[in-house]
């Protein structure tokens, strides 16, 4: 249990640093803004209390906001996906429920399951983030394009990061 908490704290710090030090500085054009830090919320263990997920998402979002100078924006998007996460998990649950002690990762549940589960959360996060950033509907379609393309990139990066972490675990 304690081990799990430390692993998550480590993951939190690593993902924030990767986001603000590397991805923030890589400019791939106007439409591609991946946000991989939400991987932290996506792969929190199943048993994590729901309110704890909300609070952690809030802290994560505020931390990212500090670096992006967008107070509240990322926090709002993160809190929202933390709120819908239990529902999505229920929607995709196997017939006999999730095994205890597992995490919603590729390692435990396979690529198709993870892609559909994470895909929904990523798209929701990006929708809220980009539309709240614009704060008007006049650029509806260009913003929508940004959401879709960025979400695609975020998903690819999330899957790549998952494989990197998994390989490490196998070596251990």
């Amino acid at each position: 249990m304690l081990n799990e908490i430390f692993r998550n704290i480590f993951r939190f710090i690593t993902l924030v640093l990767v986001q603000v030090l590397i991805i923030k500085n890589v400019e791939l054009g106007r439409f591609i803004n991946p946000f991989v830090y939400i991987l932290f919320i996506i792969i929190l263990p199943f048993e994590t209390p729901k309110w704890a997920v909300l609070l952690m998402a809030f802290v994560l979002g505020i931390t990212i906001d500090m670096f992006y100078d967008t107070l509240g924006l990322h926090a709002a998007a993160c809190v929202f996906i933390a709120y819908v996460r239990p529902g999505i998990l229920k929607l995709f649950s196997p017939r006999d429920g999730y095994e205890s002690g597992t995490q919603p990762t590729i390692q435990y549940l396979g690529v198709p399951w993870f892609l559909s589960y994470a895909g929904i959360l990523v798209i929701m996060h990006h929708l809220i983030l980009f539309y709240m950033e614009i704060f008007r509907f006049s650029e509806f379609f260009s913003t929508f394009l940004r959401v879709i393309i960025s979400a695609g990139f975020t998903l690819i990066l999330i899957v790549v990061i998952q494989y990197l972490f998994n390989r490490q675990k196998e070596e251990e």
């Binding site: 729901k50 309110w51 909300l54 609070l55 809030f58 979002g61 967008t70 107070l71 509240g72 924006l73 926090a75 709002a76 809190v79 929202f80 933390a82 709120y83 239990p86 709240m132 704060f135």
Partner: peptide, 22 residues
């Protein structure tokens, strides 16, 4: 329904921050 209310509280805090920040 504490989950929903915690969510409501945090989300409105965020939106307040966003608007105030704007």
């Amino acid at each position: 329904h504490y989950f929903f209310f915690v969510f409501l509280l945090l989300e409105s805090l965020c939106i307040y921050l966003v608007v105030q920040n704007n």
